[in-house]
Computed example of a mutant assay.
Amino acid sequence: MALLEVDAITGGYGEADILHEVTMRVEDGEVVAIVGPNGAGKSTAMKAVFGLVTIRQGHIRFHGEDITGLKPDRVVRRGISYVPQTDNIFPSLSVDENLDMGAFLRSDGIREQKARIYELFPPLKAKRRQPAGTLSGGQRQMVAMGRALMLEPALLLLDEPTAGLSPKFMDQIFDIVRTVHATGVGILMVEQNAKQALAMADRGYVLAMGRNRYEDSGQALLANSEVAEMFLGG
């Protein structure tokens, strides 16, 4: 049984369908990358998993349970956390307070998990009392990912985690994704830096015009000349 199964979903926003029979899956502990041109429906597919899109056809299953159309708060309770591309931190709150906000559903103590987050993201520990909005772009992304991990999800959804970052911070974020993956968390990632994303992914999906175009291992997609020419810049 796959960790996540997206089975031929069609849907979008309002009356407009952005996705057309999109299918994908994430196995336990996998990193799966969704790549493709702008407007391909990549972020919409991820938002569909998190309950932010109207699905008119198809099913989404998590650990075998049908979660199609569940509201985000119920999706979170099942073990899925989502890091959106923008507005993904509380800028006026401290780093520590941001992590506390990420644990809003927990009734048990959070001290141990918070300590693990600071071990994953060492630069944040020294700045734990600093307003998150004053951090660098890369460090703000660490805060967003750390907050999402406070609930110890089985699946982490990352929407364009390197968007707008310098090459230095871009490499740092990819390293962090690898570190998070090493803890056993499954990762579904939308990423414009397709070559780097596919290089670290177990599998990848290429979307175009809201439809599946290619599916294969990350390395196989990188080696596919047609994929490279059409979607990876040659």
Rank of each mutant, 00 (worst) to 15 (best):
M1V: 09
M1T: 12
D7I: 01
G11H: 05
E15R: 15
T23L: 03
T23E: 01
E30W: 09
V31G: 05
V31F: 09
G36C: 02
G36V: 01
K42C: 02
S43I: 03
A45H: 04
T54P: 01
Q57W: 02
G64Q: 07
E65M: 12
E65L: 08
D66S: 09
I67A: 06
P72I: 04
V75Q: 10
V83P: 06
P84Y: 04
T86H: 15
N88Y: 10
F90Y: 15
S92M: 11
V95F: 15
A103C: 09
F104M: 13
E119R: 06
K127Y: 00
R129Q: 07
L135G: 04
Q139A: 00
Q141D: 02
Q141R: 15
A144I: 08
M145A: 00
L149C: 06
M150G: 08
E152C: 06
A154P: 01
L157K: 14
E160K: 03
E160S: 04
L165H: 14
I187V: 12
N193C: 05
N193T: 10
K195L: 07
A197M: 05
A197V: 06
A197E: 11
M200N: 08
G204V: 07
V206T: 05
V206P: 12
A208E: 14
G210D: 02
G210M: 02
A223N: 11
N224S: 12
N224Q: 07
A228D: 00
